[in-house]
């Protein structure tokens, strides 16, 4: 069997008996033996000069706003933030321009809004949980088990977004109304379309004992250190209630009732509380009405028109 050997780079050297170098023009030599050309050499520039200039503008802008965006938004850099967000009047060759670097919008539009305050300025020193309870039409109160206190299974392998949201409604009160609205709708969905009265929030927390205390309690013996998280004193505080009847989007509209196979509302407008929008159409209508009123000299017209199939806003 006549065989001719070639070898890839980086391999162990062949013995003299094995080595049968193919000719320099051989295809096998070029494809299977010669080193694969390095992609980096020789160096080339990425684009033509005009394109480099164009992309440079973007690179410079992005890098600058990235740095400024990550500076503190107050103190001495407050005006710097403002400068990157406001219009500037400039005159070039007699023409006035009002360029705006529009940093905030750029960061939002490109998904670059960022904050890196993780465990900052300090990690929490207490474990906080929000107990979510529903008061039904009979006046009974149900714990919906939305908090993780004593409920989490270990090892904790898959990230619990619902736990994150439970913390969010503690830290940012603005979310509670929306969360409660969902709980109202969800209760309605799972209870044949019957809405609850209200959603009650109770904040619970335990304090992580300071390390010095634990070390002192163990007498400095590392094998006796530690504590049982469920033995820590549980503090509780009422964080108020949100009524399902009066909160916006806290009722199932007919569109959702239809999807869930629930009985439809006879007069949806009396039950469902939609979001109040003020869109271009509303503004246009307001302006038109005002114009009409002015033309007719009639006072006392409603400020905003009623929409078809919806309540007046």
């Amino acid at each position: 069997m006549g065989s001719k050997k070639t070898r890839s780079e980086g391999a162990e050297p062949m013995s003299e008996e094995e080595r049968t170098e193919p000719g320099p023009q051989s295809l096998a030599e070029g494809l299977l033996h010669e080193p694969i050309p390095e992609p980096e050499r020789p160096r080339k520039w990425a684009y033509a000069n005009w394109l480099i200039a164009l992309i440079s503008v973007f690179v410079a802008y992005h890098a600058t706003v990235l740095l400024v965006h990550n500076l503190p938004n107050g103190g001495l850099s407050k005006e710097l933030h403002n400068w990157f967000n406001k219009e500037h009047e400039v005159e070039i060759l007699g023409t006035k321009w009002t360029p705006n670097l529009d940093m905030r919008t750029y960061m939002q539009a490109t998904g670059n809004t960022q904050s890196w305050a993780m465990f900052a300025p300090n990690p929490h020193r207490s474990n906080s949980f929000m107990k979510v309870m529903v008061k039904d039409q009979d006046g009974d109160v149900w714990d919906m088990a939305h908090d993780i206190y004593g409920r989490r299974r270990y090892p904790y392998l898959f990230y619990d977004r619902m736990g994150k949201i439970n913390r969010r409604i503690i830290e940012q009160k603005g979310y509670r109304r929306h969360y409660a609205a969902w709980v109202c709708r969800e209760w309605e969905r799972t209870h044949g379309g019957e809405p609850p009265i209200e959603i009650q929030f109770v904040k619970m927390w335990t304090r992580v004992p300071p390390p010095e205390k634990l070390i002192a309690e163990a007498g400095g013996n590392p094998f006796k250190m530690g504590y049982d998280p469920m033995e820590l004193k549980l503090f509780q505080r009422d964080e108020g209630a949100i009524r399902c009847r009066t909160t916006r989007n806290a009722q199932l509209p007919n569109e959702l009732r239809e999807r869930y196979g629930l009985p439809l509302l006879e007069d949806e407008s009396k039950v469902f509380r939609p979001v109040v929008h003020r869109t271009w159409w509303d503004k246009q209508e307001t302006a038109r009405r005002a114009k009409e009123r002015k033309a007719q000299g009639v006072a006392g017209q409603p400020a905003r028109p009623a929409r078809d199939g919806g309540p007046s806003k």
């Binding site: 465990f119 300090n122 990690p123 989490r152 904790y156 992580v208 070390i215 094998f223 250190m225 530690g226």
Partner: peptide, 30 residues
Amino acid sequence: GSTWKDGTALFYALNLDHFYRYPMTGVVTA
């Protein structure tokens, strides 16, 4: 914050119920 200066930050972070993979308060304290 003060916990990053006095070095207790990781102790607290690793003992938060929301985050630890497994309650290891003894190991963390040691």
